[in-house]
Structure formats: structure tokens, C-alpha cells
Write a protein that binds this DNA or RNA. Sequence first.
DNA 1: CTGAAAGCGCTTACAG
DNA 2: CTGAAAGCGCTTACAG
Lengths: 346, 346
Amino acid sequence: MVGSDTAGGRATIYDIAKLAGVNPSTVSRALGHQPGVSVETRKLVEDAAAQLSFRVSPLARALPTGRTGTVGLIVADITNPSYFDMIRGAQSAAAARGLTLVLAESSESGSTESVVAQRIQPSTDGIILASPRMSDPEIRELNKAKPVVVINRSVEGIESVVPDIEPGIRDAVRHLAANGHTRFAFLAGPGQSWISARRWDSFREACEWAGRTAQPIPTLAPTLEGGRRAAGEVLASRATAALCYNDLLAIGLMRELQAAGVKVPDEFSVVGFDNIFGSDFTTPTLTSIASPFKECGATALQRLLASRQGTEGSPHGVRSTPLRVSPMRTTLIVRGSSGRLLAPST
Amino acid sequence: MVGSDTAGGRATIYDIAKLAGVNPSTVSRALGHQPGVSVETRKLVEDAAAQLSFRVSPLARALPTGRTGTVGLIVADITNPSYFDMIRGAQSAAAARGLTLVLAESSESGSTESVVAQRIQPSTDGIILASPRMSDPEIRELNKAKPVVVINRSVEGIESVVPDIEPGIRDAVRHLAANGHTRFAFLAGPGQSWISARRWDSFREACEWAGRTAQPIPTLAPTLEGGRRAAGEVLASRATAALCYNDLLAIGLMRELQAAGVKVPDEFSVVGFDNIFGSDFTTPTLTSIASPFKECGATALQRLLASRQGTEGSPHGVRSTPLRVSPMRTTLIVRGSSGRLLAPST
DNA sequence: CTGAAAGCGCTTACAG
DNA sequence: CTGAAAGCGCTTACAG
């Protein structure tokens, strides 16, 4: 509070240079913690900077260097609770490195996503796409200009962070099998969903391995309502347990079953996916397979920074195999909606 | 796909100028949709731009103009569901105007908030603070450099967007009174919370007006656990209905009451606040007072842009009274957790 | 270790 | 209507 501010306009390195009696380039070096500045000069500059409460302009810095100090994150739907932890993971990893996170939304549309990505790309050092709706070629095209990392999808030639769903699904099947269930249903996600296909594949395998049968059941939408509507077909399938593509489907299914007089979990077990916010609000609380979304977000950011260093100029992060980072395993969270089968449903 | 790209480096207006055979300044004007460019020239420039798949650099544009095309939004906690709609409202309002939204988090800390705000301010056209933790003077200081709008708080001299809680609270009191309740409890939020104090004030007034008694009950934290812990005191107060500072408290309270054998809503009615995601996952579903958070986010953005225009140079958006935008009323969402009192709790 | 100069990609008075 | 020039606030070779 010693005089400070030029009321309104921010101080520039020129103001500091004048006050400290040095050249602007020296100010730049001193403040950039570059080597080759004498201790006295650095002190002089820092004092002047503090006195003028100087704050570097990230924009002005970005222009000559190309380093914006900003990374973009594009999600399909900001209010989808599955993304919360991902956003948070990326956001805090960014903040920890003094980077700024730009959050954008594609509204579940591939074309919007593409437009948004192109718009924010110039002012970022790279972009993270969470469960992208864009086509593989579009993503690769984007990756030519600046590094791209995708979460929850595998794209040839692009850095990819995908949680390993197998452990969680295997544990779920074991858990259900151990509790007397033999016929399983899978409430599927959207038909084109890469993730839904992966989850079903993995579930089917795990069931086969356990000597159980699994039947896929389509849904109208991955929502509460979609889960409700599927309840009839689930019962008709004579399954006594269902794994659902996501928690909303699971909750919808559970409520409709209960409304139809089916006791959960005594007569039917329900397992969701993603362990979203609120999955413990239900009665009974929902058993769910949790993905390490927060870690996915943080890891994606880390990979982005890594590939930012490596290949400059040429396409970034070139590698043919998607990454499957070992600590990012899914986990089964057993709660109240799954358990021993008491009365066979026939 | 006609030749395009200089493989790697983006095209600049100089490339366009060369290709179109005009001066870069003309390119700038043509692409900026400025008046005073002949139709032919404009066409020429646009074709060249398309051919080079030109995309203007927002950074380079921001430097001479000061217009960054970016607005900042700082929330205390990204994963707090109360903010989801606010974020979404601001995000879509920004996107609709071709603006980019930078999302940052303060981790509930006033000092972090201040640091973050200062860091992102230079690369924004202004900042929205949602339920800020900073002090009033700090916020005013920030507002000197670029416009600031606060949501959910009133700060002298700062544009402020606060939902009108009165309608929702009044309706809740009426609803409960009409259902035979006479003694009410209020589960309070954090002691320093501006919002909690407002909600309690309004609730007390509404109760007085309806000739009912209201008793405030402190909580340890605005969480499920905080709600659970308060259940004993609520019962001891001999209230038969509670309004809670937020939905998490309400859900925690409801579950603990149910665990203690109290029937909801037959013996006790619970009303939450904010109508968060998942408040309809509970059994019974939660009655809650919904705030128009999405509109708050959108309105805040709108105000920010408005004050960006007005007073340039001098402190922005100077007005002594906080805004209370009329359409932003709270609404009571009646669900299953509130209703007619059947068996008085004594 | 420090200074003087050029340049990042735009915009915008100022001339013509 | 169009061009030439200066400048936004930095960084970074290039000299010394």
C-alpha cells in the first residue's frame, strides 16, 4: 500500500524498468527467474515490481512465446455428474502448476465440439477432450496444431486416458455370483457409445468366465426414465441382477422395480456405474462401480504437458497404443442395492 | 481440403493479405466485419481466409484492443452441486456470445480466491464471483481493474445478482402451516455464511407473519453428516418440520430421523434448499426450495458485459444498491418429504 | 551481466 | 475504399 497503482491501467515492464533504472529486457529476465541476472539487479527489479503491484500479462507473454499457460477441457455436458470429478481433477492439477483451465461444453454434439475446440485452441497450450463426440480423424486433425488428450476413448495416434473397467466389473460379477445370482442383465447406454460397448464387452466376458449368463437390454436414454422404462424387459429376462451402464439407469430401474413390488436387494440386485454424486441418497443406497475420474482428469493434464514438451512442430504425442495407466482401476463400491438373493423371482 | 494449411503453423492475416493481394489492415477490417470495405475485396479476403483455414488468434487480438473475449468465473468448490447450474448458465450465456469461460476454484478459501482472481484477471474481460469468500474491500479492489459481478452476495458498489429467496420461503411456510405444523426448526449453514443468515432472517419473518414459531439449530457442517448430527436437537426442539440451509443437511436429517423410527412426512416434514441434483433420489423424494441458479449465472454474465461497455477507465458498474432481478424468484418444489402431520411427535 | 532491437499477430488512427 | 505505420506488452537472440 505504498503509493502503488497507476489508477486503472496496469503497470508494465517498462514502468518497472524506468523505476528500477534498467532495461525492460532485464526486467523480463529478472522476473522470469532466468539465469544471468545479478542478485542486486534482481532485487531492484523485484522491489519495483512489488511497488507497482505488477502482474505479468499472460496474453502479452503468450504472443512471442506461444506458451499461453492455459489448457482447454471440453466435456459433453457440464451438468453430467460423471464429469464433475474429471473437471475437478484437471482443474486442480492445472492450478497446482499455475495453469489456467478453460472449460467448454459441446452439448453432446460432435459438430459443436469441433467448433468449440477450434475456437479455444489458439489460446491454449493444448486440449483435453472428455468422452469426445468428434470423429477420430477430426481429433487427429486438431492434434496437428496443438496436443490433444482424450479421456474415456481410444483414438489411434492420440494420447488417451481410459480407466481400466475390468477390475470393477469382475468384482461386481464375483460379488453377485457369490450371492446366488446366475442370470444377469446389462442395461445398455446409447447405441453409439464407445464406453457402453466396452462395458458390455467386459461384463459379458466376466460373466462367461464365471459361468453365468448375461443379457444386454437396450434403453431409450441413459437417464432415470430410461432405467424405469427398461424394468419390464429386465423382469421378463428372468435375470435377478442387473449391471447398468450408469447410475441414473440403475436408480431408475431400482425405483421402478420397487414400485412393482420387487424387493431390492432381496429379490433383485442392482449395480450402477460411475458412483455419481447422490448415489448414496437412494434407499437402499446404490452399489456402483467407481471410475477414478479425478485421476483421469489429472493424468490427462499431465500427459498434455508432457507431449507439449516433446515433439514441437510435428504432430504431438504420436503413439499408436492408447495409454492404460495402471493405478486408474475401477473399484466396486458395495452398498445396499445388491446382496444375497432370497426369493427367486419366479 | 484444397491445399490448405502450412502444416503446423497457423495462417496469419499476412498470409491472407499476400494470397488476396491486399494490405493486412484490409484483411483485418474485412474479417472484422467493419464498414468501409468493398464487397469484392471482402469476398477476396474471405476466400483466401477459408482457403488457408484461417482462425484469428484471440491473444493477438486482445493485446491491442484489450478485449480478450474471455470471462472468468470463480466458485468456491467445483463439485458443489449448487454451482452446477450457475456454471452452466454462465457457460452457455458466454458461448452464445462467442465468449470463452474460464472456470476457477477457490477451494473455499478467501486468500486462494484472491490469488486466483488476480491471476486470471489480466486475460479476461471481467470476473464473476459466485458466493465469494473474499472481503468486500478486496472485491472492490479487483473491480478497479476490470468489472466484477458477484452472485449470492451483496457488496457495496459492486454489481450483484441475488435470487429473491422470499417467495420460496414464504410458500414453504404456508405449505407447512396448511399441513398442520406449528413449530419449525431451521438447520443453519456455516456461521459466517451471508446466505445462511439471509435465509434464516427470511424464514423467521415468514414464520412470524404466519403466527408460527421458528427455532434456529446450528450444524457442524453443511453436509449429510451435519444434518444427521443435528437430528437429536431437532427432535428435542419439539418441532415437527424443518427448513434446512441446504439439501445435503435436509437429506442427512431425514435419514437420521428415519433411522430413529420417525416417519417422514407423516410425523415430520423436511424441506431443503437449492433443489440439487439427486434430491429426487431419496425416499421419500425431497421437498426443496429451488433457486434459479442457471439464470443467476446467465444474468451475471450479461451484467458483466454491460458494465464492460459503460464506464471505461474508472471503477466499473458503480451502483450503490445490489440488483435483485425480478424474474429470479425462488420456487418451492413440493415432493414427498413434506406433508400433513398425522401423529404429533409427543 | 546488461542493453538495444526485432518480432509475436493483431488493430486502428492517420493519410491518401 | 485502401495502404503504410505505429503500437499493444512481452521475450529472446544478438552484441557488447
